[in-house]
């Protein structure tokens, strides 16, 4: 039986030979990841907008007595994050050709450095000289840290799981697509922090109390 009234003679397009996965924007999941990045990027942008909105009506920024964490520790996180880019890029490239060993190495390094960044982040948080409930500035900085740390930790979980999968197997061809998507997302985590860090600490280091109300 047929639910479509089919014309007696029909032409056919045979798609049975098509591949079962694809890289890049041909892949639906690629769109999923980029849209997720758009959502979270918008969220970060709005946090930053709120930061400047509140800043504009203050006469001191940061408020006196708000001791920032030492710059070196914030640098440490940024460097650990930036250091993940070469190995993850390596994995990203090699995934295209299905070179499992290379991808494993790249991701393993990425995951380790990601772990390092989580550790330095923990120190960073411990060294912030004010609390989220000290003043609105504190709330903003802690808010930014909170949201990003959430990403950092979920990035770590994701990297661990993908890496583990690649070591445990069996590894499907399609997993190479997932590796690349995971990497793209991870780069978002890295880049967003570099920007947020530059804004928060650039502001408090170079622009302290300038452009205030």
């Amino acid at each position: 039986m047929s639910d479509i009234a089919l014309p007696p003679k029909r032409r056919e397009i045979d798609v049975s030979g098509l591949p079962s996965f694809a890289f890049g924007n041909r892949d639906p999941l690629w769109w999923g990841v980029w849209l997720l990045i758009a959502i979270e990027g918008t969220m970060f942008a709005l946090l930053v907008a709120s930061y400047f909105y509140l800043r504009a009506s203050e006469s001191e920024w940061p408020p006196t007595g708000a001791a920032q964490p030492p710059l070196w520790i914030t640098f440490a996180t940024v460097i650990a994050l930036l250091a993940t880019i070469p190995p993850s890029y390596y994995a990203f490239r090699k995934a295209l050709d299905g070179r499992l060993r290379a991808v494993q190495i790249g991701l393993l390094l990425t995951t380790i450095l990601n772990g390092v960044a989580v550790v330095t982040r923990a120190y960073e948080l411990g060294m912030i000289g004010y609390n989220w409930n000290s003043h609105a500035y504190g709330s903003l900085v802690w808010g930014i840290y909170f949201v990003h740390t959430l990403h950092l930790v979920s990035g770590l979980c994701e990297n661990i799981v993908i890496t583990a999968l690649l070591f445990i197997g069996p590894v499907e061809k399609k997993h190479m697509v997932d590796v690349r998507l995971g990497t793209i997302y991870w780069w978002f985590v890295v880049v967003s922090w570099v920007i947020l860090w530059a804004i928060v600490f650039g502001d408090s280091t170079f622009l302290r109390n300038s452009f205030v109300a």
Binding site: Y53, L54, S57, A136, L140
Partner: peptide, 12 residues
């Protein structure tokens, strides 16, 4: 007890 919207502590 953050102060995003708390006028007394710099919120708005």
């Amino acid at each position: 007890a953050t102060h995003y919207f708390n006028v007394a502590e710099g919120g708005d």
